[in-house]
C-alpha cells in the first residue's frame, strides 16, 4: 500500500472531475477544523485505488500485504497504460458529488442494469445544459443511483432524438456487482 504519485493523482482526479462539479474538493477536505483532523486520502494497493480515511490507512499498514484484501472505498484501477478506470464501487462517491444526472424510467431500469446504454425512450429527466461526452450519473425515478456513463448527445440534441437513439453510453452499472463478482475486488 502506498500513496499515489503525482501523475497517478492527476489522472485519478481528472477522471473524477468528469463526473463531479466544484464539490470535488470536499472529497479531500478535512473532517473538522482542528489541526490534526482526520481526512480522506487515496491509496494504491497493487493497481487498485482506494479512497480511505487517513487514520484507517495508517492502521492498515500493520496488515501484511497478502492479507490486505481491501480498505475504504475502491474507486477503480490504474491500467498498465497509465490510465484510470472507475469501478461501480465508486458510485456512492460520484453520486454524492454528481454534476450532471439522468433519471431513467422504470421501463429502462432493467435494460440499464443488464449492461445496456440509456435510450431516449427510457429517459425520464435530464440535467439541463448538459454537453455531449461528459460523465453523468444515472438514477432511477426514485433518486437511487444505478450507475454512471458518458452522454452521447447534449441535452438539446437529445430532445430531438428518436426514441431508440442512445442518450448515454454506459460505463458502469450496479449489475456489475453480480456480473463481475469475481474480478471486481481482486484480479
Amino acid at each position: 500500500m502506498r500513496a499515489l504519485t503525482e501523475e497517478e493523482m492527476s489522472t485519478v482526479l481528472k477522471k473524477l472531475a468528469n463526473y463531479t462539479g466544484d464539490s470535488l474538493k470536499e472529497l479531500i477536505a478535512p473532517l473538522d477544523d482542528s489541526e490534526n483532523a482526520d481526512r480522506y486520502v487515496f491509496r494504491v494497493v497493487k493497481d487498485r485505488v482506494y479512497y480511505v480515511l487517513l487514520s484507517i490507512a495508517n492502521l492498515a499498514t500493520s496488515v501484511a500485504r497478502d492479507n490486505l484484501a481491501s480498505l475504504g472505498v475502491c474507486l477503480g484501477k490504474l491500467t498498465k497504460t497509465g490510465k484510470f478506470r472507475l469501478h461501480i464501487t465508486s458510485l456512492p462517491i460520484l453520486a454524492a458529488h454528481a454534476r450532471y444526472k439522468i433519471w431513467i424510467k422504470p421501463n429502462g431500469e432493467m435494460s440499464f442494469l443488464f449492461g445496456g446504454n440509456v435510450l431516449k425512450a427510457h429517459v425520464g429527466r435530464q440535467t439541463e445544459d448538459c454537453p455531449e461526452h461528459v460523465g453523468v450519473v444515472v438514477y432511477n425515478m426514485a433518486d437511487c443511483p444505478l450507475g454512471f456513463g458518458v452522454t452521447a448527445r447534449s441535452t438539446a440534441e437529445a430532445r430531438r432524438l428518436d426514441p431508440t437513439g442512445i442518450v448515454c453510453f454506459r460505463q458502469a452499472d450496479c449489475g456489475e456487482y453480480l456480473r463481475d463478482e469475481d474480478t471486481l475486488f481482486a484480479g
Binding site: R2, A3, L4, T5, E6, M9, S10, L13, K14, A17, N18, D22, L24, K25, L27, I28, P30, R39, V41
Partner: peptide
C-alpha cells in the same frame, strides 16, 4: 517515485484539474 500525500499539494492539484475541466 514522488508521492502526493500532503493536504496542500493535493488541494493545489485538485484546483488545477478542476480549472482545466
Amino acid at each position: 517515485k514522488v508521492f502526493v500525500d500532503d493536504k496542500e499539494s493535493m488541494s493545489t492539484m485538485l484546483a488545477l484539474v478542476q480549472a482545466d475541466k
